[in-house]
Write a protein that binds this DNA or RNA. Sequence first.
DNA 1: GGAAAATTGTAGACTGATCTACGAAAATCC
DNA 2: GGATTTTCGTAGATCAGTCTACAATTTTCC
Lengths: 353, 353
Amino acid sequence: MCTGRGAMSEQIKRATISDVALHAGVSRAAVSKVLRGAYGVSGTMKARVEASMVALGYRPSALARGMRGSSFTLGVFVVDLQNTFMSVLIEGIRAEAEVSGYQVFIGEASRGLSQQRQMIEAMLDRKMDGLLLIAPFGTAGDLEEIGRATPTVVLGRHGPGQSYDTVASDDMAGSALIVDHLAALGHRRIAHLKHVGRENNEDGMPQVVRAQGYIDAMVRNGLEPEVDVIEGRWHQAGGQHASELMLQRPHPPTAVHAGTDMAALGVLAGLYEAGISVPGDFSVVGYDNVFAASLPQVALTSVDQSGVEMGSMAARLLVERIQGRREPVSTVVAPSLVVRRTTGPAPAGPTRN
Amino acid sequence: MCTGRGAMSEQIKRATISDVALHAGVSRAAVSKVLRGAYGVSGTMKARVEASMVALGYRPSALARGMRGSSFTLGVFVVDLQNTFMSVLIEGIRAEAEVSGYQVFIGEASRGLSQQRQMIEAMLDRKMDGLLLIAPFGTAGDLEEIGRATPTVVLGRHGPGQSYDTVASDDMAGSALIVDHLAALGHRRIAHLKHVGRENNEDGMPQVVRAQGYIDAMVRNGLEPEVDVIEGRWHQAGGQHASELMLQRPHPPTAVHAGTDMAALGVLAGLYEAGISVPGDFSVVGYDNVFAASLPQVALTSVDQSGVEMGSMAARLLVERIQGRREPVSTVVAPSLVVRRTTGPAPAGPTRN
DNA sequence: GGAAAATTGTAGACTGATCTACGAAAATCC
DNA sequence: GGATTTTCGTAGATCAGTCTACAATTTTCC
């Protein structure tokens, strides 16, 4: 194993709890008590043990601690790291987890339900104390099962669940903000891109709620006859494809609620290539307020979900759940509209419809 | 602990190796052998044990396995998840790790060296089998120490290291591609944004190599007198600030090698606000070829580092190292230039100079 | 056909912590 | 001042696996 290169590449063995006990002249149990801040330690002993810990550069093995107690680890499950909104959520999670003494590890699974299941099992295999699932695939039943196995908070899906908590943006209100904004600008033919996944288990998924919110708001604005839901996929290519569909209509819409910034960026790309002026001829609204939306060349009007707060809220709920809460909590965070330069007055056209 | 809500919320206990042994009527050691594919198992017993595993829905605890053997976990350390280039690298890592049977967990630490150290210690505490550090902070000495503690591959820093492997883009060649491209377009006053971090331990950091590559290429193109290195930070705000600095010059450059796409996006934002036309009056080149660069509204000319290959290469090296390799390997991946619409012919101006 | 070698399975120590049970010493009570 | 309670510390089981040493077979060899 050890090559003949001399002693410099020796692996330095980590100090264990036994080493500390030996060094301090106490029992392993005593060191463990100091470590956990448990009852039954005198000030003298505590000081002595802590001095030994420092002297030996001791750090407890999270692995071994996890065997009996908790592993002080939270698992964040993410479907797509490319979406920068995820990292905003994660920032909120991390900040909150830090104050509670938990480490956060992120696992990604972009390729569907089976990969997701594998990733979550991997987290359970490592006895993570709690799971944060960001916009996971699967039915509510799948999530219930996970929630029964370990403390779980689901981000980005509307609850309530039986065995897990949820934190979501108020997608109903978000859609209303968008439609009202466009209607106030004089738009009537306002389309909506609805995401349709491969599996059809869409209970509580944002796409369902946003679509419903869109329809409700259209009705409320007296635009029921103009309701126009285009089904597709919420990524850039999906948005680009949708823009082609819209332009092919005999009577194309003048504005679109794209459902997601990624899709909105695709729509903008499609319109750009078709030579349609934004917002002169067409207004586009996204959802998530990702980084790219704020670029001045893009200046996408979008709905902001205050991701950092959602993240820290979720982490807080998770810690509560780890500490024993059983009643499910379902939280909704109010979104806000960020108006930029992809929305403008409806183009002057035939005034009657 | 259990509230009076009935039996439905019972935690289902996981099957352990003992449960499987009991069910199959063999010893725990035998089950362990089957699990590890170790020598000394008859076909009959193997089949029987595997049947029991399936029957009980058994999954080994990665935690317990890690106590003696390996934890089958790779830790990916990331400085900034907002940068979408990271997720491209991670995709490559994950794909390669999967075939070797390792799980990948990502840890982020955006707030400097001490947070980074904490994160890496957390990974060591969990006995991860190997570490992939993406563009970490710290001196080469810090990295050597980590490499001595556990198998380590560093991404995005130029090697070689003693105790760890490196995978980096050939930043020298990348800078040359940029300068040659701009020079061919007739630009002479080509500036470069150099990142300057808080700590000054920049051995092998991309900013150093890219700056040197820029200078070399300028000299090679006979533009030595025009060398113009602007120091700042490689994020959007840094780029925006740099654009102001450049425009304030008595004799402003006509093109910039921004060092990074994030910085380039900031430069573009600054130029946009100043009403400077791109590429009519000014050409901008980034580095990384992130998602936002490909948006048609942005269309940033950039250097592509083929992140997926870099990621899988790094993972491959890490697995080799885990399997016992000691000699450090230092790899450099060739970059390529993606020409889009932020670069164009140099503006016609005073021909002398 | 008996010695040597290979195969197959088990016992039990070990990993590094937690945590219950218990004994000894000190503090409090009446 | 003896009984009771509290405080402080230890022994040793436990978590869920791995892995070495060894015993009991079975196979191979000459």
